[in-house]
Simulated scan of single mutants.
Amino acid sequence: MTLGKSHASLIVALALGLASCQSEDKPPQPRYVSDYRGYTGAADGVTQRSQKLYFIEFRSRYALSYGHTYVVFGRTDKSGRMINPEVAGLAPASTDAAPYVLGHFIPVPAETGASDGDLEEEYRSASWRVMLTEAEYQKTVAFIRQLQAKSKFWQATVNNCNAWTGEIAKFMGFKTPPIWLRPQQYITQLREMNVG
Rank of each mutant, 00 (worst) to 15 (best):
M1L: 04
G4R: 10
K5C: 02
H7E: 07
A13E: 08
L14C: 12
L16E: 09
G17A: 11
G17L: 04
L18S: 10
A19I: 13
E24Y: 12
K26M: 10
P28N: 02
Q29T: 14
P30I: 12
R31L: 10
R31F: 10
V33S: 04
V33R: 10
D35V: 06
G41L: 02
A43R: 11
V46N: 05
Q48M: 14
R49K: 15
R49I: 13
S50E: 13
S50V: 13
Q51R: 14
I56D: 03
F58Y: 14
A63F: 11
S65W: 09
H68G: 08
H68I: 04
T69Q: 01
Y70M: 07
V72M: 00
T76K: 10
D77P: 04
S79T: 14
I83W: 03
N84D: 11
G89A: 06
S94K: 05
T95V: 14
P99L: 11
Y100T: 15
Y100R: 14
L102A: 14
L102I: 15
F105L: 15
I106P: 01
I106Q: 11
P107T: 05
P107E: 02
D116H: 12
L119A: 07
E122R: 13
A126L: 05
L132A: 01
L132C: 10
L132I: 07
A135F: 12
T140L: 08
A142G: 03
Q148F: 01
K150H: 04
K152C: 04
F153E: 08
W154A: 07
W154Y: 15
T157F: 08
N160T: 03
C161A: 08
N162S: 00
N162F: 04
N162D: 00
W164L: 00
T165R: 00
G166N: 03
E167S: 05
I168S: 00
A169S: 12
M172W: 01
M172R: 12
T176Q: 02
P177F: 07
P178F: 11
W180P: 06
R182V: 09
Y186G: 06
Y186F: 15
Y186E: 05
I187E: 09
I187M: 07
T188W: 10
Q189Y: 06
